[in-house]
């Protein structure tokens, strides 16, 4: 019995088998693969699962990039909507979360541009201190043992750190948020931003150095 006969007698052809193996590998690597496939077949409920899974991370990326809660909400909505529209084009070459992060970062970048041009026309600067409304951090986990004063101090420090992040150029801010806040690997950042590893490292070095100087300025001794 020849190999071809064996193949033909089986349930799948070689191509089908190879596809099956690919699919299995992908689903093993990417937890979202099954839901993504269902979305690609038009299942909107599957997309809801993906939204619930990733909204917090995407929201935090958007928030750290803009320093504005409302803007971050808008950015995340737009990013998910874009992702849903383009999900049929997603071929699974990278993880879904990486692909989604790329979309979110792009939306945040565009929103920053809009804000910058708006503040330029209105005469205010994006580098102005970040104003937070009361209750803005109501969702933040409370440190049970910390006293109110400690909480306020911590909040103040965090606001200052965010202010320093806001003062960075957009290209430095992106890498800092993705690497130092979100903990993406260099490889993942390459995938997300579509820039070479060397560029990421040099931008990160510059971002950290600028941030350190800014923090020294606003906090005194770090």
């Amino acid at each position: 019995m020849s190999f071809n006969e064996t193949t033909l007698r089986g349930t799948f052809s070689l191509a089908e088998l190879s596809n099956k193996v690919d699919d299995k590998n992908r689903s093993a690597v990417d937890d979202d693969y099954e839901f993504v496939s269902r979305c690609q077949r038009g299942d909107t409920n599957a997309f809801e699962v993906l939204v619930k899974r990733h909204q917090k991370k995407m929201f935090n990326i958007a928030y750290r990039m803009t320093g504005d809660y409302e803007e971050a909400s808008e950015i995340v909505q737009e990013a998910f909507l874009s992702a849903y529209k383009a999900i049929k084009k997603f071929r699974g070459e990278s993880k879904f979360s990486t692909w989604l992060t790329g979309i979110t970062v792009n939306h945040a970048k565009n929103r920053l541009k809009q804000i910058k041009s708006r503040s330029f026309h209105e005469g205010t600067s994006i580098d102005d201190p970040v104003e937070t409304e009361g209750g803005r951090f109501a969702y933040e986990p409370e440190a049970r043992e910390a006293t109110i004063i400690e909480q306020l101090e911590r909040k103040e420090v965090q606001e200052k750190v965010q202010k320093c992040i806001n003062s960075l150029d957009e290209e430095y801010r992106k890498v800092l948020v993705l690497r130092d806040i979100q903990g993406f690997s260099y490889e993942e950042i390459c995938d997300i931003l579509k820039i070479p590893d060397g560029t990421i490292k040099s931008r990160l070095f510059r971002a950290r150095d600028t941030l350190k100087n800014c923090l020294k300025k606003v906090l005194g001794d770090i």
């Binding site: 917090k56 928030y63 998910f80 986990p141 965010q162 770090i222």
Partner: peptide, 25 residues
């Protein structure tokens, strides 16, 4: 510096976010 940045607390997205995204979709 790394510690300060790394210790930035995670911000919770608004509770209506999923609902809003899905209604738009």
């Amino acid at each position: 510096t790394q510690a300060l940045v790394h210790n930035l607390e995670e911000v919770e997205p608004p509770p209506w976010l999923t609902q809003k995204v899905m209604s738009r979709i």
